[in-house]
Amino acid sequence: MRKNNFTGFAFASPWIIGFLVFTLYPLGASLYYGFTDFNVFQSPNFVGLDNYNELMKDDLFWKSVRNTLYLTVISTPLNLLFSLLTAMLLNSRIRGLSVYRTVYYIPTIIPLAATSLLWMWIMNAQFGLLNAFLGWLGLPQPNWLADPALSKLSLILMGLWSVGNIIIIFLASLQEVPQSLYESASIDGAGMLRKFTNITVPWISPIILFQLIMQIINNLQYFTQAYFVVSSTNLNQGASGGPENSLLVYAMYLYHNAFQYFKMGKASAMAWILFVMAGIITWVIFKSSKKWVTYGGGD
């Protein structure tokens, strides 16, 4: 028995060592650094709750929180609804279906840097494709990325282009819904909307719950596209958060504190605040899911 245990631990040791070194130790270190004044070049100096108190009084911190929550609240339901409706279209019987499925999935394999560059060109105020199309229709041509009122909406539009992974998961779940349910509903005179609300949504509700939680967590950590847009254009104003810091998302401000200002203690405190925020939101969603998520194939 002991020999079998030793053999099992020996095979699992690469993962165990990796978990201890690259996951557990960084977690413990960041928790400790959150209570210290640490700039990498000097030993950490314990300061208690000073980092957290400083954050509570930091206007840029609260600006980053508001920007991130805005993106999360608007982008999450929009991405889920768009992905679900697209998956339903891709689940229908039409010619060239495999081509359409491939087209919708391809953007997800393009690096975010390339995606950001592409959309920065599309949304360019002077020669962008989007404004050219709006001008052809005789509509206003806004400065998408440089206007504080539109910059976050621009990022949300960029995000809609890369929801292929969500579409694929929704598509797989839709194919598990028994067609006999739809046939019975048709016999009873149910329309498309009734079938969607009474059959489709309850049956795939566990997948919707999963996607909802993953989208919220991803949006709370939103970083790459906002940082790339700000760093690659002349939008690098103020605290490097774009026009009036409208693109200063939470993860970007954490990055600034850690690697520009070398305030590792403050950055660690921000990381743990984000962890607690995500944990609370996830817990609330799980508690509420008892009222709208149906398990066991819709039974």
Rank of each mutant, 00 (worst) to 15 (best):
A146M: 12
P206Q: 03
I207Q: 11
L153M: 13
S186Y: 10
G164V: 13
P140G: 05
Q211K: 00
M158N: 06
S180R: 13
S186W: 10
V177D: 06
P178E: 08
E176W: 05
Q179R: 15
G191F: 10
M192R: 14
I168Y: 06
F223V: 00
L193T: 12
I208K: 10
S154K: 02
Y227I: 04
N219S: 13
L139N: 01
W136V: 00
A149K: 13
P142I: 05
W161E: 04
I204Y: 02
L155C: 09
L160F: 15
F170E: 00
S154I: 08
F210M: 12
S186D: 07
M214V: 15
L174F: 03
Y222F: 15
S151L: 08
N143K: 02
D147L: 11
L137C: 08
W144K: 01
F170V: 01
T197K: 06
D147I: 09
F210G: 00
L150N: 06
I213H: 07
N218W: 12
I199R: 03
Y182H: 09
W161Q: 11
I216L: 10
V201Y: 07
L209H: 09
P206W: 10
Y182E: 00
L181S: 08
W136G: 00
T200F: 14
P142R: 10
I217H: 04
I207H: 02
P178S: 00
N218L: 01
A190R: 04
A190E: 07
P202M: 12
L181Q: 12
S184P: 02
P202D: 09
E176D: 15
E176F: 04
L145W: 14
I169H: 00
F170W: 11
T200H: 11
I216T: 12
L155P: 11
G138L: 06
N143L: 04
L220T: 03
I217K: 05
L174R: 09
A146H: 09
I199S: 04
F170D: 01
N198S: 15
W161P: 10
L209T: 01
I166H: 05
A190N: 02
I166P: 00
Q221I: 07
M158Q: 06
F210T: 04
Y227G: 05
L171T: 09
L174C: 05
A172H: 05
Q215M: 12
F196P: 02
I169G: 01
T200V: 08
S162K: 14
Y227M: 01
T224G: 12
E176T: 15
I217V: 15
F170M: 00
A132T: 15
S151E: 08
Q179E: 15
P202T: 11
Q179D: 14
W136T: 01
Q175L: 07
F223K: 03
L220A: 07
P140H: 07
W161M: 10
S151F: 11
I216N: 03
N219C: 08
S154E: 12
Q211S: 09
L155W: 07
